[in-house]
Amino acid sequence: MIKNISSNAWIKRLRLFYLALFITVFCCLEVTANTRATITVTKTNYQGWQDSYILSNGQVEAVIVPKVGRIMQFRFKGGEATFWENDPVYGKAPNVKSEEWGYFGAGGDKTWPAPQSAWEKITGKGWPPPATFDSVPFTAKVNRREVTLISPIDPFYGIRVYRKITLEPRKPVMKITTTYEKVKGKPQNVSVWIVTQLHDPVTVYAALPQPSIFPEGYNKRSENLPANLKVNNGLLSLTRDRNKSHKIGSDASTLLWMGKKVAVRIDSPRVPGASYPDNNSSAEIYTNLDPKAYVELEFLSPLKTLRVGQKMDLTTTYTLIPRITENAEQEARKILGR
């Protein structure tokens, strides 16, 4: 037997349905709006560099300085710096014609073309780095949620660089997508190389694939090995030698800088089967000697012969993690799943 439902009852049910639908849509729109609203871009004078920007999500902030073409800082809001900065160059503009600033070692996060072994053939100098990548101001394209740094065209490589910097809403995560665009000149075999300079660490770690393509888990890139180098159960660790500089390469997709109060995890997945520079290294760690107490966590893209009109890119993801224990290795294994 089918019961008859009055028209008033149907109207009431219909009203309740639309009310519930309205509340659901309104709440979703409100959450989306609040999420978007957490990302802000503020113009500032940073360490004497005018027209800089602070990209913030309310939890972490990235400091972007177009005048030196760098992401100069990544930190918890109000927290201590993680990226190393070279105090003597604060407020100075790079000048490729100046002998004093032929190599503009400002610190922060930057990009160079790899392999370094090709610089002399392409630019006529094995050092300093190609000026357009290291020692010229970039322009900035800014919107409400991201900042993109744009370089001039390098006269030797014929490449223009784009670096798009974004933050995850309400997460301590920054992403940088670095794009090389071939604008002119003959085809060039090149790799996107990301160099992130960080303060003197407690320890630096690499999460090695198992098995690694390197028998010992690393690729020796300097005459001597770094201090306290150790490989154990898929985890490579080392410290900075105060008296000598060292460098190693690896096939890792994740590197970890461990400070006293905070850790910085950097991820850039290795492409299986691809050919990489520096004896097939996709990730590298460099440690500098005193008095400039910093280390570099570096990632490289696969090599590609870039022709006019073509682009290539590499995305690096940076995560800030508060330290919670005094045991650095135990904490690193937890962070890296090793």
Rank of each mutant, 00 (worst) to 15 (best):
I5S: 10
N8G: 02
A9W: 12
K12D: 12
K12N: 10
L21I: 13
F22D: 00
F22V: 02
E30N: 04
N34Q: 03
T35M: 04
A37C: 00
N45H: 02
G48N: 00
D51R: 10
S52Q: 07
S52V: 09
G58F: 10
E61G: 05
V63K: 04
I64E: 12
I64W: 11
I64R: 10
V65F: 12
K67N: 05
V68N: 13
V68R: 09
G69R: 00
G79D: 02
E80R: 00
T82V: 15
D87K: 14
D87R: 13
P88H: 07
A93F: 08
V96P: 06
S98I: 14
E99A: 12
F104T: 05
G105D: 15
G107P: 15
G107C: 15
W112V: 02
P115A: 12
S117P: 01
K121A: 14
I122D: 13
T123E: 10
K141E: 15
V142D: 05
V142S: 02
R145M: 05
E146R: 01
V147C: 09
T148P: 03
L149N: 01
I150K: 00
S151G: 07
P152E: 15
I153F: 02
D154K: 03
Y157T: 12
I159T: 13
R160P: 01
V161P: 06
T166E: 07
E168H: 00
K171H: 06
P172T: 09
P172Q: 02
T178P: 10
T179V: 15
T179I: 12
E181H: 13
P187W: 13
W193A: 05
W193M: 07
W193E: 04
Q197I: 05
H199Y: 11
V202T: 11
T203Y: 08
T203L: 07
Y205N: 06
A207T: 01
P209H: 04
Q210M: 09
Q210N: 06
I213G: 03
E216A: 04
E223H: 07
P226D: 06
K230Q: 09
V231G: 08
L236G: 03
T239Y: 01
D241Q: 00
D241E: 03
S250C: 15
T254H: 02
K260R: 02
V262P: 01
D267V: 11
D267L: 04
D267N: 05
S268C: 12
P269F: 07
Y276C: 01
P277I: 09
D278S: 06
A283H: 04
I285R: 06
D290L: 05
Y294G: 02
Y294H: 12
Y294D: 13
V295E: 12
E296H: 09
L300H: 07
S301H: 13
S301C: 13
P302W: 13
K304S: 04
T305D: 15
L306Y: 13
L306K: 08
V308Y: 06
D313E: 08
R323D: 00
I324W: 00
I324A: 03
I324K: 03
A328W: 11
E329I: 04
E329D: 14
G337V: 06
